[in-house]
Design a binder for these strands. Structure first.
Lengths: 289, 289
DNA sequence: TATATTTTTATACAATCGGTACAAAAAGGT
DNA sequence: ACCTTTTTGTACCGATTGTATAAAAATATA
């Protein structure tokens, strides 16, 4: 990832936070970040792809900070969970994640939509896992219900608490209040035995053991199909891309050295998609000795 | 309200449901409803105003149906409440209210934003009032909290229940489940005494006794200021509009016969705004004998 | 330092969008 | 039959996203 590209992402994010996504034109971004239109479309294939890059970098940072709070602490301590949520929600607010999500979710871009969907599933699974750390084992069948409803009441409580007490009000009491409600609710659910959604289905929504794998494979496919469009008459180029996709998606033990070689021979393409593909592979594909 | 105009509203709503608001162009609407661009802008001053008209007619219908379920029944019966919510949610789904809301809420149009905000506040107050019908009086201080959280868990539960069981799945068990959770929660809140948002603040968000009045007055102002722009050089025309606004907003007993006379003399304007203004006044301003 | 390659810029351009303007035609009322 | 209102068709405006491309600047390489 280029430093300059990172700078553009940062500046564009600032503009989106201030003015919203739709109302910020690409020209605004060019002026504010001091690059030309050509460079912009050399970095990002579209405004939506830029937004996805913003989401990616922001999420990565939030996730690291949030998990850092748990480091060395007791996972069963509800206070840690509350602090983690507070951090997550504060960061979401600062980065206007929710408004940007909603502004763009129904705009027709399938890739963006799926990206957001996966992000929300990850939050849900994290809620579910952490609630499992805190509660008794008898609550297990109701953890997903609890996560879903925690998500719901958190969003609404924060929204209206802010409406009542101003934007600057601390989130801590709201998060504690919401978590307390859900913990009580989980106890009650364990007693009454009422279940709405079975937790197993989460594996279907976002496969547990192979989560990163699946998530990553989806991205591989989308990146490669985008790359194909860049030079769709060059059969040699297309063959190489097909080989990479095939090797990664079909094989249980993809030969990374082969893929790296092919990627190297593609270096002449010199597009940001190649960087993206390389980064994806490096992050997710381990060298098999 | 013109029959033809109603037809356009209906057709446009269909398109918005199928393709979304942003991705449906005005040209699409013109083609699908078989009118010309001139006619469109004779009916609606903008695409956003058309959407507001769609919302208005849809809400009116849903509200009538929903309140009809309570007619002659016991307000304290939770089953009625559940059925009402189910109807509301089903209708919201069919009309894609939530997606349209979210798609358009962050698009910069202040009037549209406020309109949606008021609509959501009305739902919240209805939740709060109906929860008050059902629960014990000791729950009163927590009714707004309950309404807020009911709103939250309903949206999420429905969303993920649909994701798990398909779009066609009945909403009834989900709504019952959600309402049960909130009723239990209200009992628990009454015992622990924890409150997040005091119910009195609802009067501030959406004044109780004068709700319709305020809501209506805001619309009056917005319609009249729009009408002023239509012929901003005709001083006689402007004077009449000012008189109407003044008479409605400043006087505690507006003289409807006077307003009607002035409206009559404005009939030459012949714009959809005049219809809207007349309808607003007829609906909200009672004849003082 | 000189040359080759890649990146960046500036600009023109196409296509589409929401919205305005207006004259001509159609419809409707008296 | 005459006048008014509505509707139509079309041209137009400014702004938008995205493409194309030649020139300029930066960078790597020899």
């Amino acid at each position: 990832m280029n430093d300059r590209k990172r700078h553009v992402i940062e500046k564009a994010h600032q503009l989106f936070i201030e003015k919203g996504f739709q109302t910020t034109s690409i020209q605004d971004i060019l002026d504010y970040s001091g690059i030309s239109k050509g460079t912009f479309y050399n970095y990002f294939s579209s405004k939506n792809q830029l937004l996805m890059d913003i989401f990616r970098t922001t999420f990565k940072k939030i996730e690291i900070d949030r998990n850092g709070l748990l480091f060395g602490k007791d996972p069963g301590d509800p206070e840690i969970f509350i602090s983690q949520i507070e951090l997550q929600m504060t960061a979401n607010r600062e980065n206007k994640i929710v408004p940007l999500f909603e502004e763009v979710f129904f705009s027709g871009d399938k890739e963006l939509k799926q990206f957001i969907e996966v992000g929300q599933m990850k939050i849900l699974r994290w809620f579910s896992d952490r609630l499992g750390d805190i509660t008794d084992d008898i609550c297990k069948p109701y953890l997903l219900d609890g996560a879903i409803m925690l998500n719901g009441i958190l969003l609404q409580n924060i929204r209206f608490h802010r409406k009542a007490n101003g934007e600057a009000a601390s989130l801590h009491p709201v998060v504690r209040y919401s978590v307390t409600r859900i913990l009580n609710m989980l106890e009650e659910l364990a007693q009454s035995g009422e279940q709405l959604v079975p937790p197993e289905i989460m594996d279907q929504w976002l496969p547990v053991s192979r989560t990163e794998e699946l998530d990553w494979r989806i991205n591989i496919h989308s990146v490669i199909s985008r790359m194909k469009k860049l030079d769709c008459n060059n059969t040699d180029y297309l063959k190489k891309l097909d080989f990479i996709e095939e090797e990664i998606l079909r094989s249980s033990t993809p030969r990374k050295f082969l893929i790296d070689s092919v990627l190297l021979s593609l270096a002449t393409v010199n597009k940001y998609e190649l960087d993206e593909l390389q980064a994806l592979i490096d992050e997710n594909l381990l060298e098999k000795a």
